[in-house]
């Protein structure tokens, strides 16, 4: 079991970090060094003031109100998923440092309960989002439009979410953030080691598998359509400024 953890949760993390940041950097480099269209591609109406245009860009990108209007169901699942993913991302910050303020307000046990609730909600919402997307891609025009990339991403994402949820719902009561933090900080400080609580429990299988999927997902990320996460801002400019 220790070998599995070393591969997925130590060396895998390093490799993923290199591929992910290198890939995203390359992607941004490619985009920014390709000249913009000489033709004006703008769409109307546009706000008159600079502030209005900036606000519109943020609104278009984070809320996509037009998409909400034409496909409310899809939009609801997508919005909930992205929000939950953001929540999960922030929540993972506890791996590095305990949040400020909150633990003082809630106490240590209270903080763990709070994290359990928010983490569980985010975990369930993400699972629902992924299952909805998978289901949607099994029929009609959605199926015809899908390519293997779409299923691969959703499969990897499902793995990440299911194993994350597994750790939360099965081991959430016994293993808390502090234990994972010891492991994660050891990786970040290049002195990788696993705390004994992890090695002595079956949670190591879940963690290893969560990390396996996360590594693969994040390594593929920069080479997939998920670069929409950074590209959406500049592609949406046509609505507000260009």
């Amino acid at each position: 079991m220790e070998t599995y953890l070393w591969i997925t949760s130590v060396w895998g993390v390093y490799l993923t970090a290199i591929v992910f940041f290198g890939g995203m950097g390359w992607r941004i480099y490619e985009w920014s060094t390709t000249p913009k269209s000489a033709v004006r591609l703008g769409m109307f109406p546009k706000p008159k003031s600079g502030a209005g245009r900036f606000a519109k860009l943020l609104g278009d990108t984070f809320i996509a109100p037009q998409s909400a209007k034409i496909e409310p169901t899809m939009w609801t699942f997508a919005f909930a998923f992205h929000l939950a993913a953001l929540g999960a991302f922030v929540g993972h910050g506890r791996l590095i440092k305990e949040f400020p303020v909150l633990p003082e307000m809630l106490g240590e046990a209270g903080m763990n309960t709070f994290a359990a609730w928010t983490g569980s909600i985010a975990g369930i919402v993400m699972l629902a989002g992924v299952l909805f997307w998978i289901a949607r891609r099994t029929y009609g025009p959605f199926k015809n439009l899908s390519v293997p990339e779409d299923y691969l991403l959703l499969f990897l994402l499902l793995g990440v979410v299911v194993m994350g949820d597994h750790m939360r719902f099965v081991y959430g009561g016994t293993i808390h953030a502090g234990v994972y933090r010891d492991w994660f900080m050891s990786v970040l400080t290049f002195k990788p080691a696993f705390p004994s609580e992890l090695l002595s429990s079956n949670v190591s299988v879940s963690l290893g598998t969560h990390m396996l999927f996360a590594d693969l997902f994040l390594m593929y990320f920069p080479f997939s359509k998920l670069v929409h996460s950074i590209g959406a801002f500049s592609s949406n400019l046509v609505r507000s400024s260009e």
Binding site: W31, P35, S37, A38, I70, E71, K225, H228, A232, S235
Partner: peptide
């Protein structure tokens, strides 16, 4: 090729929201 075209090629999520438009 230009920046917009490259991004259009790279980022479409094949979500089909455009279908009923």
């Amino acid at each position: 090729m230009n920046r917009q075209l490259k991004q259009y090629m790279d980022i479409c999520a094949r979500c089909a929201i455009c279908k009923d438009a």
